[in-house]
Write a protein that binds this DNA or RNA. Structure first.
Lengths: 235, 235
DNA sequence: CGGATGGTTGACACCTATCAAGGCCAGTGG
DNA sequence: CCACTGGCCTTGATAGGTGTCAACCATCCG
């Protein structure tokens, strides 16, 4: 019956099915899940939800890249996090039953699956395993936050940019004859927001890394020469 | 029956009972909770758990002040957070079933209630409301982390120190004839760790705030003159 | 062509880390 | 009582990093 239920499960064909927070849903609840379930394709730049908007469910990134950003009173903004396929977003507003504190915008053409609020609530009440998986995601988020707080307190901006570029190369890069290459999914301002520095500073940091032959960058084309696949993980 | 169960409940007499993550526990589960329940008094400087130690349960601060700190490979450390009465700590290691990523040390004489791992697991399986409350605490933690990340990216260290001192005064201060006064529960190094700056820098920041007549500080005695009670919330 | 956008560069003031030295204070042992 | 010591904090000098303001450049688009 495992097979039959996986076929009926709306996430059954998803690459992230086994790790999905909805994977424990079975039996009659599957139909509730299916009713609340929608798939959404987002164009680059399109918004999934706005800061301050009411929560209308829980989102799961299936393809692409979503940026979570908060706008401050003074007009500036901070890019808090990048959400990759398999990541669950929007659960804070859902669990806390309150407006979104961040806005979600697609940085690449993306696909996002939504489980509407009503159905999600119903399912969680009936199936605690779903809540347990959601709690695990919260823990992961806390871990990431702590890592970020520690990094910004103990690591130079230059090193943090290096780490960020290596991370992005790992996610978006392709091997070419002379190393690895990627199309940078972020603008300079986004990179600056992510590191918590001004755009001018970011520009200079990039300049310095280029001087060090860490990479070559022109527009959004980034090339890291002499980068062996395994060395991406280490630094 | 509400009354009877509250009296039996191990947290029944706690000031934070209504908000406690264990409040939903009722019926037979109460005896399981009671069996796993212990109260611990910590002296100043005493450790509740070490970084890297196995989780042995979920802790709830009942009195005092606990510092959560992580040590890095290079010997330095970061003070990630202060835990006040009513706060739940150690749940990450518990929920994630893994070693503690931080160490918990009492900054003041404190009392902490522990629900042992085994009992806590049993209760959570039987009572999803407990898990839901734990998830809410996770969300609160994420909110705090985001606020911290945003503050360190958008606010000067000087302003952040100001905010921190106002916060501490609100928590630990007492009104005196000329304003508010407190015994600072943190060393200079701890303050520096909390802001993510070097001790020397912190010392200079303090010096500047004194010049601005923001406060008077000598050792751990802090005096904020002309500070009306309501003005503490605004800034 | 003109304007908008996004990015870079320069100048400058300010802030911070680092290294080094010194002050303050409590506890210790003579 | 004194000198000594170690921990904690402060102060100074210096080099490097960062924010800010302003100008400039490239590209795209109407």
């Amino acid at each position: 019956m495992q097979h039959a239920s996986k076929n009926q499960h709306p996430c059954g064909k998803c690459a992230f099915y086994s790790g999905s927070i909805w994977q424990p849903v079975a039996g009659d609840a599957v139909s509730v899940l299916t009713r609340g379930f929608t798939r959404n394709d987002l164009q680059e730049g399109q918004s999934l939800y706005q800061q301050g908007a009411e929560s209308n469910g829980v989102f799961c990134v299936s393809k692409g890249l979503i940026a979570l950003r908060t706008h401050h009173e003074d007009g500036s903004s901070t890019l808090l996090r990048l959400a990759y396929p398999g990541d669950v977003i929007g659960y804070r507003a859902f669990l806390g039953n309150r407006p979104h504190q961040t806005e979600a915008i697609a940085l690449l053409p993306s696909r996002v699956c939504t489980v509407a609020r009503r159905g999600a609530n119903q399912i969680i009440l009936a199936n605690p395993d779903v809540l347990a998986r959601l709690a695990e995601r919260c823990i992961d988020e806390i871990d990431n936050n702590h890592a970020q707080i520690i990094a910004s307190a103990t690591t130079s901006n230059r090193q943090r940019l290096k780490n960020l570029m290596l991370f992005l190369m790992e996610k978006h890069g392709e091997p070419v004859s002379s190393g690895f290459q990627m199309h940078l999914p972020l603008s300079r301002s986004d990179l600056a927001d992510l590191l918590g520095v001004q755009p001018e500073t970011l520009s200079r940091l990039i300049g310095r890394l280029e001087c060090d032959n860490f990479f070559t960058i022109k527009g959004r084309k980034v090339l890291m020469a002499g980068l062996a696949p395994q060395s991406m993980k280490s630094a």
